[in-house]
Design a protein around this nucleic acid. Sequence first.
DNA 1: GGTGGCATGTAACCGGTTACATGATTAT
DNA 2: ATAATCATGTAACCGGTTACATGCCACC
Lengths: 185, 185
Amino acid sequence: MKNNSSIKSTSLDYAILGLVHQHPMSGYGIRKEFELTAIGNYSSSPGAIYPALKRLGKFELVQNRPDKEDGKNKFHCTSLGKEALREWVSKPLEQKDVAQKMDELLLRFSFMDALVGKEQTLLFLTSFRDLSKAYLKEIQEYHHNQYDSLPLHGRLALEYGIETYKTTYKWCKNTITVITKNTSL
Amino acid sequence: MKNNSSIKSTSLDYAILGLVHQHPMSGYGIRKEFELTAIGNYSSSPGAIYPALKRLGKFELVQNRPDKEDGKNKFHCTSLGKEALREWVSKPLEQKDVAQKMDELLLRFSFMDALVGKEQTLLFLTSFRDLSKAYLKEIQEYHHNQYDSLPLHGRLALEYGIETYKTTYKWCKNTITVITKNTSL
DNA sequence: GGTGGCATGTAACCGGTTACATGATTAT
DNA sequence: ATAATCATGTAACCGGTTACATGCCACC
């Protein structure tokens, strides 16, 4: 009974929302951000950004108004927008996220610190860690069982996946430690 | 002056083409493949697969005809299809591929062994390795220069990227060794 | 003989791509 | 002055998503 009139947003919408939450910016600024930095590999084309901003505006998640600093028009994240963002970063992780949407997970993590507490962050990370480990185990078993029947390149590509998930698992463990020790919150 | 009447295909088209090149299969079989294996995270929905097969058929890259083995209708890769596939896997790598299209690169590598020789494969891999290293260096420098100004989560997410590209670089080096030593070609 | 998997499609919808278009401001 | 960058849009096109629809065949 919840969320029925709420935005069905793409991750692009949330990426934008997260950006303007950190710092209000113009649509042009957002485009530059996507174009020049490595952020999740979202499109920087005006045909993607401006319609997205319009969508977000329609649901009152962002608002284009003069900035207090320099008086220039900038898109701001509203309190409704902040709430939507908080919901998004807090969504429980699923197996398929880890298998298919790493970029989005990392983006959620990036935006998380301004939105939720340490506890919630650690929940996210342990979930991330466990799901990565589970997926890793799965493909390792596949690798082991199919070793002889796999074509050479197929096997090597699979091994790339295995190494990648090992790295992810390690990053999770390390990051959990960092966040746990961090006393600023 | 080349390629003007040729397909503008999505990577989904090539993923399908690569699959039916390895083994002729039904559209349903392709769907199962995408659904059950980790292959590049392509859609397995009929609304994606069948239109794609129609596209490929229009350009005579695939053909749906009875299989010699069991008489069932299956999509086969034509010689034209094989040529298109060879071109695709042989495309020179660009910086943006490494930054944004890893999955596609791995898929190209997977299909490569049935299409090009060892030399071409090593060209691909050394290019992959060098571009990964260059990109790694870039984000490492960014990490170093911005260390103090980055928000904690932003920094940690960036470190995930760094570890990932280190892994990629290592995989390339190792795989180059494996392919070089491989005498079967 | 009916449930479930095989097999192929279509239609509405929506979002991203590409390309075009415009005007304001800043810099040289 | 005029080029470059800031800033915001629109329109045609296309491909993927979701959901619906159909018919066959095999298995128990």
